[in-house]
């Protein structure tokens, strides 16, 4: 995906609930219109980040993708701050 991201939240190796909490922290620092990407190895982050974005005012989940990096599953979540 070619979305331009203002920030990368690297939570590889971290497990529930850290991906959501670190996402929230970085999201707060974004300006309206900016997008961040969360890079996680926790497979639960797929539903956790989705649920968080749905419940958070001003957070829009643009895309989630699963890739394999160095033989390990990596989950990427693109979240845009709309206001």
């Amino acid at each position: 995906m070619s979305t331009e991201t203002a920030e990368t939240v690297d939570v590889k190796g971290q497990n529930c609930p850290m991906p959501v909490i670190k996402t929230k922290g970085a999201f707060e620092d974004l300006d309206a219109g900016e997008t961040l990407v969360v890079v996680a190895t926790d497979s639960g982050s797929m539903s956790d980040i989705k649920g968080w974005a749905e419940s958070t005012d001003g957070a829009e989940l643009l895309e989630q993708e699963e890739a394999t990096e160095d033989g390990e599953s990596v989950y990427k979540h693109y979240v845009r701050k709309t206001k």
């Binding site: 609930p17 909490i21 929230k24 958070t56 005012d57």
Partner: peptide, 11 residues
């Protein structure tokens, strides 16, 4: 602790 920190992330 997990629920508390998660709820905080939900505002």
């Amino acid at each position: 602790l997990i629920l508390a920190s998660t709820a905080a992330a939900f505002g």
